[in-house]
Amino acid sequence: MDLALFDFDHTVTDRDTFSTFLKANLPASRLRWGGLLLAPLAFGYYRLKIVPARTLRAAVVRVGLTGLERRALATAAERYARDTLPDFVRPHALERIRWHQARGDTVAIVSASIDLYLRHWCRQHGVALICSQLGHRDGRFTGRYRGRDCCGIHKARRVLKRYRLTDFQAVHAYGDSSEDHAMLALAHHRSYRWEPMTAAADG
């Protein structure tokens, strides 16, 4: 039996599901003033490429979610996972997940996206989940993560905390960005943007 590790956004899906979820479910007033507050960071990420994605995500969580009622957004997240996410999933990605499952492999999504909706999608498809988790207290979001943003080296560390790799005959990993490199390095079989990684890519 093998272990198969899949990044989610832009690997299993064709887009960023985190920002799509927030845009669809945050109050309009918060989207407006939050957009203004975050504009410099967004410009630094999308245009100048000098702001790391993890920095922008943490700021979005802080500005977008602080103080919001958890129950209402959790209900919206379940609906989003059921009704919206299927339209974003790449057919060949789902086919690959099914291929691993048919072989009896352990399959896990390893994502910087949030538990709020990913847990529903993963439960529906019978796969394990390692992801960023939102902090909450007294029924409201704190605006911080519970633990670390699940990206970069922290993806690999959380995989190693969950699984003993020597229990598997081989490890497969699928990713699409620099945030996946540490996870890909754990694997015997690596796919980057759905292409096998070459020796040059490994370096």
Results as ranks from 00 to 15, higher is better:
L134S: 04
T142C: 04
T142M: 04
R190K: 14
L160C: 10
L116Q: 00
L186T: 04
A185C: 11
T166E: 11
S191F: 12
R137N: 06
V60Q: 13
G143E: 11
E69S: 08
R57Q: 12
A170M: 08
I130R: 09
Y117D: 04
R162Q: 15
E95Q: 12
I130V: 04
E195A: 13
H172E: 01
R190L: 08
A72R: 14
L129G: 13
R103G: 13
C151V: 09
H120T: 06
C131E: 09
Y145I: 01
R144T: 06
A173L: 02
K155N: 07
R123Q: 15
L116G: 01
T75R: 10
R144M: 03
H181P: 09
S111D: 12
R164A: 15
K161S: 12
A53D: 07
P91D: 04
K155I: 00
Y192E: 05
G143L: 04
R98I: 08
G67N: 09
G175I: 03
L56E: 06
D115E: 13
Y145G: 00
Y163S: 02
Y80S: 03
R79C: 02
C150W: 11
D176P: 05
G64Q: 01
S177A: 08
T75P: 00
G104H: 08
L73V: 03
E95R: 09
V159W: 08
A59K: 04
H181D: 13
Q169S: 13
D105R: 09
H188S: 14
R62I: 00
R144H: 14
R62V: 01
A182H: 13
A76K: 07
Q124P: 15
I114C: 12
A128Y: 11
R146L: 06
H92G: 03
T142D: 03
A156F: 15
A182W: 06
A128F: 13
L73F: 02
R90E: 02
A170K: 12
T75D: 14
G175Q: 06
A173C: 02
G126H: 12
K155C: 05
G152L: 07
H188W: 10
W99H: 15
G135Q: 01
E69C: 09
T55I: 01
L165W: 09
R62Y: 10
R137L: 14
A74V: 14
L118I: 03
V110D: 09
M183C: 13
A102P: 15
S113E: 11
L94Q: 14
Q124N: 11
M183S: 12
A112Q: 08
